[in-house]
Computed example of a mutant assay.
Amino acid sequence: MAEHDSPYVLDGQVGYLMRLATQRHAAIFQSLTLEGLTAMQFAALVRIAEQGKCSQNHLGRLAAMDVATIKGVVDRLRAKGLTVTEPDPNDKRRTLISLSASGQALLERMYDRGHEITEATLAPLTPEERTALVAILRKIT
């Protein structure tokens, strides 16, 4: 019997299992985050800290978010006072985003939380399994 001829069992499907793992991670993130920061907002802040001033479009690519999603994330970060914007001196049509002092301070406090979140997410795994999982995820993304 060919592999695709076997019965379809949802509990054995990679997409379903990845969704369950993502839901578990999201719940852990929300329980440990500071000031209501979402995982996507945290990712955007980290990318801004790594990159420095950047356009919204570039930030979206760096954080793996589509145009509509990154716009909403940036709007919410600005509303929380975590980012600031300024015109790009090289292109007046474009705005550059950077961390505000509050954003930098929150990000520095969130780094430890980020490690705790990862630790809690990977808690059921052995050190070897953790290394393997991260390597496999990198390979398929």
Rank of each mutant, 00 (worst) to 15 (best):
L133C: 08
R113P: 00
I70H: 05
H58I: 05
N57W: 08
R47N: 07
L17A: 08
S100W: 01
D11M: 07
Y8H: 14
N90P: 00
Q23V: 11
A39I: 07
A26W: 01
G103T: 04
A68I: 12
L106A: 06
P127E: 13
Q51V: 01
R76L: 04
N90W: 03
G114Q: 08
R138V: 00
A26S: 11
V134F: 06
C54D: 08
Q41C: 08
P124I: 01
E128D: 15
T69G: 03
R93S: 13
V46E: 10
V73Q: 07
I117R: 06
L137Y: 02
L106W: 02
T85P: 01
A44Y: 05
L106D: 01
A68T: 14
L77F: 08
M18S: 06
Q41L: 07
A2N: 11
A27Q: 13
V67N: 14
T131H: 14
L137T: 02
H4V: 06
A27W: 01
C54K: 02
E128C: 05
T126F: 04
M1P: 08
R78M: 06
L17N: 13
R19N: 10
A105G: 05
Y111M: 11
Q30N: 15
L37P: 04
L17V: 08
D88N: 15
I48V: 15
T131K: 15
M110V: 02
D66Y: 09
E3H: 14
K53D: 11
V9S: 08
Q56K: 15
L77K: 03
A2V: 07
A49M: 03
S100M: 09
H4L: 12
T95L: 14
Q23R: 12
A123K: 14
Y8I: 15
T131L: 12
E119H: 12
G15K: 11
K71M: 06
G15S: 10
T131S: 14
I140C: 07
M110S: 13
L77P: 05
A123C: 02
R76G: 00
L125P: 02
D91M: 04
I136G: 01
Y111D: 01
R109D: 07
M40I: 05
M1C: 09
M40L: 11
V84L: 10
K139D: 07
I97R: 03
I70A: 13
K92V: 05
Y16L: 06
V73M: 09
N57F: 10
A135W: 02
P7R: 15
T33H: 12
I140P: 00
G52L: 10
D112Q: 08
R93E: 12
R78T: 05
A63G: 04
A135P: 00
A27S: 10
A120F: 02
L59S: 10
A26L: 12
L133D: 03
G81K: 09
L20R: 15
L45W: 02
P127F: 09
L133E: 03
L99P: 02
T95M: 13
A101M: 04
V9E: 13
I28T: 14
I97G: 04
R130K: 15
A79D: 13
G103P: 02
S6E: 15
G114R: 05
H58D: 09
L82M: 08
K92I: 02
K71F: 10
V73L: 12
C54E: 05
L106H: 06
R61T: 06
M1N: 12
K139Q: 14
G114L: 06
T83P: 01
A64H: 10
S55M: 09
